[in-house]
Nucleic acid binder design. Structure first.
Length: 649
RNA sequence: GCUGACGUAGCUCAGGGGUAGAGCACUUCCUUGGUAAGGAAGAGGUCGGGAGUUCAAAUCUCCUCGUUAGCUCCA
């Protein structure tokens, strides 16, 4: 007998060789019908795998409700997609086909004369459903490396052969469903009939093993569901998400624009967007004053020597905007791609003592980077953007405390902006690829350790990514997802031992000797452009009251009250309340509708009654009627709401 | 940069070898209004740009610019 422990800690005994499917049947027929995979001692496996341990086994039966169930089904769906593709394109070569966060993909090399596009989706989707209905089992076969190699040699599939190179003989398994056989470690769902609805999402190029030196394959993304209804709901959700897209809202609300004539990836801020942006800058400047930062301002260009010194020229010079040349030969300037070298020069402008440190230079520095054209995206990736940048110069033993103080600042900012779901990521070196980085081994070790320790002290739960560090040092990033689930880096904190060395930065220690400071680069917003993009998507353009360009709109019932309304607006302006009078020749219903569409928080409706009583009828965005209020009541309402938003209450 | 898709009025989009259409926005007039669209009339586009095929191109082909989904990259 074997002892099985379920997630609710109940324990049952079953004969050896029992499968997860048998156990599901034992619990209920319904469960047996819905089980997709099993988690055995934390490892997801096929439900038909016999259990044969003498030890107690932790068993979790996975259905569509579980992430593990979903990913297993999507993995199996990828195989089904491949089978459908194989049906129409027998000579297509299959590379890899894993499940992803929302569905799955398969990377395929099509014959040279075939151009696969989204127009082919329909026939493939139909075929997938047709194959799914055949209720073919996913059959596992163990195979020797030799046989596996000869199988794929016959198929002339170099991708699988390359994958086989890294596999050990004895560990190699094939899965077959219907007429499709794939090299695969599994697990898979019991049979294809669980797949009841399919949607191919998009097709795109993807380099083999993610390396642009390799051949580009055709990647087909898809998603499947056990019920048609769930697919429909998913597609509706996608549509909803698209409505929150900052590019769409930015256009509708006239926040920003792009112009081909100005150039790709160079945003133009329209009055309302510029208002928003200035408000954010005000907020950050005030916050930073409280955290002990000193403002500095540096120019938009810097001489080539500056970047040769910093190491950026060697690393990025070729891929930057080309240098600006002066009439004097041999004089070259670059648009500044970052602010740190300028700040290093400010540091060097006078002798520093350990008593001066930490020294925090902050600047809203606009920088320019030549991003690849395919990578440009709305405001989230642009070629000219403004960082809420600062560089902090500390003694080595201040690194830890200062790093933690910066974490506090970033958390404060995220809270004030209403961001709750963020991912904390620590990016370290790829230890197998050290030539990508500059600086000494000892410094890297030290920097990586102190970041990990800071995160721990601040009770963050970071994910750790190797190989994602900046070339000069490790970093801790705060990432937020956009409307369609892509992760973007907003706030960033980076430790850097290298620039101080390159710029020969020094301070005099208490021992009367010269020492080298450590630099911390940090930007709580990251860039204003990207931050505002994410803010738009998270609020659907319904910004916090303190930030929104228009807090109120005054709606005269008829033009008889226009003059009165203009006076009212002026008196509200004295209380720092901003907005305008809608004196268009329109009905009140129309004015209200437009104000609703423009997401203006408060509508002040003024007619005969209000003029007589010196009150205003206040309607909140969304339709809530707050009734008649005096100017004092309204200003109190707005002020208290703003205090609450900024966490001052 | 690479692969696929897309580019028609200010916006959202329809059309598609015989030289353009809707809704909203805009302008003017009528209406002077009470909590999500009052009515009428008008103005707006060499269909992203260039070349080719054709008697004829917004429509087909090629090139180019831009947008977009991914891949790669991201100081």
């Amino acid at each position: 007998m074997i002892t099985i422990q379920f997630p609710d800690n109940t324990i049952k005994k079953f004969p050896k060789g029992t499968t997860a499917l048998d156990i599901a049947k034992d619990i209920s027929e319904g469960l047996a019908r819905n089980i997709l995979a099993a988690k055995i001692n934390g490892v997801i496996t096929d439900v038909k795998k016999p259990l044969k341990s003498d030890q107690k086994i932790d068993l979790e039966l996975l259905t569509w409700k579980d992430d593990g169930g979903k990913s297993t089904m999507w993995h199996s769906s990828a195989h089904l997609l491949a089978e459908a593709i194989q049906h129409y394109y027998p000579s297509a070569k299959f590379a890899i086909g894993p499940p992803v966060e929302n569905g799955f993909y398969y990377d395929i090399e099509f014959p040279k004369d075939i151009s696969f596009s989204s127009e082919d989706f329909l026939k493939i989707e139909k075929k997938i459903l047709e194959l799914a209905r055949e209720k073919n089992e996913y059959i596992l076969t163990e195979i020797s490396k030799k046989d596996a190699i000869s199988y794929f040699k016959k198929k002339e599939n170099n991708y699988k052969l390359e994958l086989l190179e890294d596999l050990k003989d004895g560990d190699i398994t094939f899965y077959q469903q219907g007429g499709f056989i794939d090299l695969c470690k599994g697990p898979h769902i019991p049979n294809t009939s669980f797949i009841k609805a399919v949607k191919l999402i998009n097709v795109a190029g993807a380099y083999w093993k993610g390396d642009e030196k390799n051949k580009q394959l055709t990647r087909i993304y898809g998603i499947t569901f056990p019920k048609q209804k769930e697919l429909t709901e998913y597609l509706i959700k996608l549509e909803e998400a698209k409505k929150r897209d900052h590019r769409k809202i930015g256009k509708n609300m006239s926040l920003f624009m792009f112009s081909n004539k100005v150039g790709q990836g160079l945003p133009l801020w329209l009055p309302k967007g510029a208002y928003l942006r200035n408000k954010l800058i005000d907020f950050m400047q005030n916050t930073q004053l409280n955290f002990g930062y000193l403002p500095v301002i540096t120019p938009h260009i810097g001489s080539k020597d500056l970047y040769v010194c910093s190491g950026h020229y060697e690393k990025y010079g070729e891929d930057s905007f080309q240098p600006i040349k002066t009439p004097n030969v041999n004089e070259e300037f670059f648009l500044k791609p970052m602010n740190c070298p300028h700040h290093c020069e400010i540091y060097k402008s006078e002798p520093r003592s350990y008593k001066d440190l930490p020294l925090r230079f902050a600047e809203f520095g606009t920088v320019y980077r030549y991003e690849q054209s395919g990578e440009l995206h709305g405001l989230t990736r642009v070629r000219g953007f403004t960082q809420d940048d600062a560089h902090i110069f500390v003694t080595p033993d201040q690194v830890q405390d200062e790093f933690e103080a910066v974490i506090d600042l970033v958390l404060y900012v995220l809270k004030a902006m209403g961001f709750k779901d963020y991912i904390v990521q620590i990016s370290l070196r790829d230890k197998n690829n050290k030539e990508k980085y500059i600086g000494s081994e000892a410094n890297w070790e030290l920097a990586e350790k102190s970041i990990i320790q800071s995160a721990k002290n601040k009770k963050l739960t970071p994910i750790i990514e190797y190989g994602e560090a900046a070339f000069y040092g490790p970093k801790l990033d705060f990432m937020i997802k956009d409307a369609i689930g892509r992760k973007w880096q907003l706030g960033t904190i980076q430790v850097d031992y290298n620039l101080p060395e390159r710029f020969n930065l020094e301070y005099k220690g208490s021992d009367d000797k010269m020492h080298q400071p450590v630099m911390i680069h940090r930007a709580p917003f990251g860039s204003l452009e990207r931050f505002i993009a994410l803010l738009i998507e998270h609020t659907s353009g319904q910004f916090p009251l303190w930030l929104t360009p228009e807090q109120i709109i005054i709606l005269p019932i008829s033009k008889k009250y226009n003059e009165y309304c203009r006076k009212l607006l002026n008196s509200l302006k004295n209380y720092d309340i901003r907005g305008h009078v809608d004196d268009r020749n329109e009905t009140t219903g129309k004015k209200i509708r437009d104000a609703e569409m423009n997401k203006i928080p408060y509508m002040l409706i003024i007619g005969e009654k209000e003029v007589k009583e010196e009150l205003m009828s206040v309607r909140e965005h969304g339709g809530n009627n707050l009734g008649a209020m005096s100017t004092t009541q309204l200003t109190t309402l707005i002020k208290s709401k703003i205090s609450k938003e900024l966490g001052k209450e």
